[in-house]
Simulated scan of single mutants.
Amino acid sequence: MAPKKETDNTNIVAQNRRARFDFFLTETFEAGIVLRGTEVKSLREGKGNIQESYAEAKNGEVWLVNCYIPEYQSKMPFGHEERRPRKLLLRKREITKMHDALNKKGFTLVPVKLYFTERGIAKLEVAIAEGKKKADKREAVKARDWQRDKARILRDFS
């Protein structure tokens, strides 16, 4: 099943911009996240970081590891652990596809974007990714620089 198309009405909380530079993203999935109340409140304030996080599949489930959601600042006597593993909600066939990809050498699960849908539900975009080598990264930088220079030349020429 293909992931749903993204609309402009989503509220992006955190993005992993480095993921597209460090990895070849082969396939993306939209996953729900099991969160506690204070975690949702903290995310609604725009706090949260998925830069150093990753996902792992074990025992037929997929978990988001090392995602940072700071404690919600209120007078509540209980909070949440900031870097606890969080369960991702996916379809069974998506989980098996991810598990099969992880068994191949060089593949990993990378969180790309954390956002709220129009209905106010927290979602995480997870991608099956293959690590880039140093030469691939240099090639990406060259291509990006050339596109920028080409746009500048065309703008000046017109």
Rank of each mutant, 00 (worst) to 15 (best):
K47E: 12
E39S: 07
F107Y: 15
S53A: 15
M98D: 06
K4G: 10
K150E: 10
G32H: 05
E30P: 00
E130T: 03
T96M: 10
L124E: 00
L109G: 03
E94N: 09
T108E: 11
Q147H: 09
E45S: 14
A151D: 06
D22F: 13
V110R: 06
I50Y: 02
E130D: 00
E82Q: 13
L90H: 03
R91G: 10
T96C: 01
Y72C: 03
E6I: 06
I12H: 00
A2R: 10
N59V: 00
E81T: 14
K142D: 12
H80A: 08
N9K: 13
G131F: 01
I153E: 10
K92R: 14
F29Y: 15
M98C: 09
E94V: 03
M98E: 04
A2Y: 05
K105H: 09
S42V: 05
T28E: 13
E130W: 00
E6S: 05
E39G: 07
E118H: 07
T96R: 13
A57I: 09
P3E: 12
D156T: 01
K133G: 12
I121L: 13
N16P: 10
F24M: 11
R83L: 14
K123A: 04
A19I: 06
I50S: 02
W146G: 00
V62L: 06
D100F: 02
K132S: 03
G106P: 00
K47T: 07
R84A: 14
A127K: 01
G37S: 03
R86D: 08
R83V: 11
S74K: 06
Y54R: 13
I69V: 14
K104N: 11
G106F: 01
E82C: 09
K150C: 00
A57F: 08
V40T: 11
A101M: 08
K87E: 12
G37W: 02
T28R: 12
R86W: 08
M76Y: 13
F21K: 13
K142R: 15
V141E: 13
I128T: 03
L154G: 02
W63D: 02
A135Q: 12
N103M: 11
R17N: 14
G46K: 05
D136V: 05
E6W: 01
V40Q: 03
A31Y: 02
Q51A: 09
N49S: 15
F107T: 06
Y115N: 02
L88G: 08
H99R: 15
A151I: 03
R83A: 08
K47M: 13
F107N: 12
A101E: 05
F29M: 11
D149F: 10
C67D: 08
R155D: 04
V141N: 04
A31I: 05
Q15G: 00
A122Y: 01
I33S: 01
R155H: 04
R18K: 14
G60A: 07
D8E: 07
G79M: 09
E94K: 04
E94W: 04
T10L: 04
M76L: 14
Q51G: 06
R93Y: 06
H80E: 07
P70Q: 05
Q73F: 05
L25H: 07
E118K: 11
D136Q: 15
Q51E: 11
Q73G: 10
